[in-house]
Structure formats: C-alpha cells, structure tokens
Write a protein that binds this DNA or RNA. Structure first.
Length: 262
DNA sequence: AACTGTACCAACCGCAGTCGT
DNA sequence: AACGACTGCGGTTGGTACAGT
C-alpha cells in the first residue's frame, strides 16, 4: 500500500474513475493556484481523493497541453527508436513526445506496438529478430556457467599443473588449430536460423574435442576443454561481422566445457 | 439475444529516490 | 545517521467497449 494513500484508513477516500464534478474541482483548483504540494490539493480543492490520485489525474488527463487522439506514424517510429535505446523508461520516452504521457505511451506499447513487433518476428525487449535474441540469452547463461567451470578448474592444483605443462603460452599456434574462429566463415546467419539444423559441428570446441577423442583420461578431456575456454575468452577480443554468430559459437563452446566438468 | 474472448486504457499499487528535520 | 513526508516511476489490475461465435 502506498504511504500517501494509507491515510484512506483514517478518512474514507474515493477510488476508481473520476466523475466530471471531481475533474472540474481539480481543474479549477490547479488553474487558480497552480501545481504545488499534491498532498494538500485534495483538502484545498474539496476532493475525497489522495494527493497521489489527484496528481495522476492532472498529469494523465486534465493537463491542458495534452495531445489527444491516435499516435501518428512519426510518434510511433520515435517510440520504437527510443524504446530500443532506453527500454521501459516511459517517463524519459514521454519527455521526447510533447503532449503525451508516460502512461499513455506505456499503454500504447503494451496494447499495440509490442504485438506489432512480435508479429514481425522481432523481440520487443531486444528489438532483434526473435531467434537471435533467444540465442543471446542462451549464450549469456552458458557463458556464466563456463566462467564458473573455469574457476573450479583453477582451484584444482593437479589439473592446473598439468594444464600449464601442456600449453606454451608464448606460442599460441599450439592451440591455434582449434581456434573457434576457424569455423565461423561457414556459420549460417542466425537471423535466418533454422531450428531443425544442428550447427554445433561448426564450433571450435567440437573440432577440438574430436581431435582428443582418443583420450580415455577424463582429466585430459577436461584439459582439452579448458584450452577451448581460453580460445573462447580470446573470442571476445575478435571483431566478427555478425555478433549472433559469435553468440551461437559461445553458447556451443561453453556447453561443451561445462559438460566436461560435470 | 446471450455469451465469451480480446483490446484498450484509466487508475491503483508498491518501490525507490529526494528532501527536510 | 535516521526518520518521515513527499514525489515520480514502472508494473499491474480492473472496468468497459467491441468483435466473434
């Protein structure tokens, strides 16, 4: 319960839709005295409402500078652009649209624009094609698991000792053949991603794992996967044409690694 | 005509931030 | 620093209108 309206316990306050009489009282009061302390408005205007309710009614309905009617195409485009940049910061978005309120824009978004985007196959939260957005979520999840796994490995002294013996950090070529980047040129554009097709074979982790598949030593396999995680981290330094391709590769790689430590 | 589902929108609620004491 | 009063914001709810069956 909002603090301001909790006074309704002491004094019976009206709720729900505003009557024309109430609107008139509030409008007259603000016209005469201007917008001041909202908590004192109900008493001074002779209304059985809380100040918060009066403020909302003025801002969203009674204000004389409000624009009425449908949103124009220009306004719609502006909302889309601003939402992409700002997210659900309705007040900030409204500040860029004279005569429109945050509540109005929020309602317009939830009832119309959001569905419009979904129909076009665009995720309204990310403004990206839905498949790509799903993959990005998966990538973020898998990568955090990967980081966890890598940390666990780092606490295993035997593992780390063997790992350091294996890798010559001065010659990156020792693991370059497994560089995940090598599979990317053949990766599909994920904005047109086909759910039915398994592209995991294109990942560096797969190529790497396959090369070490003769090993029956689980520790060696884990080591191999650890190496791929190094390549994976270096991936973040790369600039690829398509971030979505990187996302998919990361998701695939991190899954391989996390499985190795299970 | 009666019922059901959906869209729209006004208003409410709770939280967080700010300010004064 | 702690507290209460107030304001502003974003999420949610509930009522109404309308379309479809």
């Amino acid at each position: 319960m909002g603090r301001q309206c909790s006074s309704s316990v002491k004094q019976k306050l009206r709720k729900g839709l505003w009557s024309p009489e109430e609107d008139e009282k509030l409008f007259d009061h603000i016209s005469k005295f201007g917008v001041g302390c909202w908590s004192s408005v109900p008493k001074l205007a002779g209304l059985q409402r809380c100040g918060k309710s009066c403020r909302l009614r003025w801002i969203n309905y009674l204000r004389p500078d409000l624009k009425r009617g449908m949103f124009s195409q220009e306004e719609e485009d502006l909302i889309l652009n601003l939402h992409e940049a700002l997210g659900n910061r309705w007040a900030q978005i409204a500040s860029q649209l004279p005569g429109r309120t945050d509540n109005e824009i929020k309602n317009f978004w939830n009832s119309s624009l959001k569905k419009k985007l979904q129909k076009q196959g665009i995720d309204p939260n990310t403004h990206k094609p839905i498949v790509a957005a799903e993959i990005q979520v998966k990538m973020e999840k898998d990568y955090s698991e990967l980081q966890k796994s890598s940390k666990q490995a780092a606490y295993d002294p035997i593992f780390m000792s063997e790992f350091q013996e294996t890798i010559d950090f001065n010659t990156p070529s020792s693991y370059r053949p497994y560089d995940p980047g090598c599979g990317f040129n053949s990766m599909p554009n994920l904005t047109n991603f086909d759910h039915q097709t398994d592209y995991s074979d294109s990942s560096g982790a797969y190529l790497m794992k396959e090369s070490s598949s003769n090993s029956s030593n689980p520790r060696m396999e884990a080591k191999t996967d650890m190496m791929s995680s190094f390549s994976l981290e270096s991936l973040f330094e790369f600039q690829f044409d398509g971030a979505d391709e990187r996302s998919y590769a990361l998701a695939s790689l991190s899954q391989e690694l996390s499985e190795a430590f299970q």
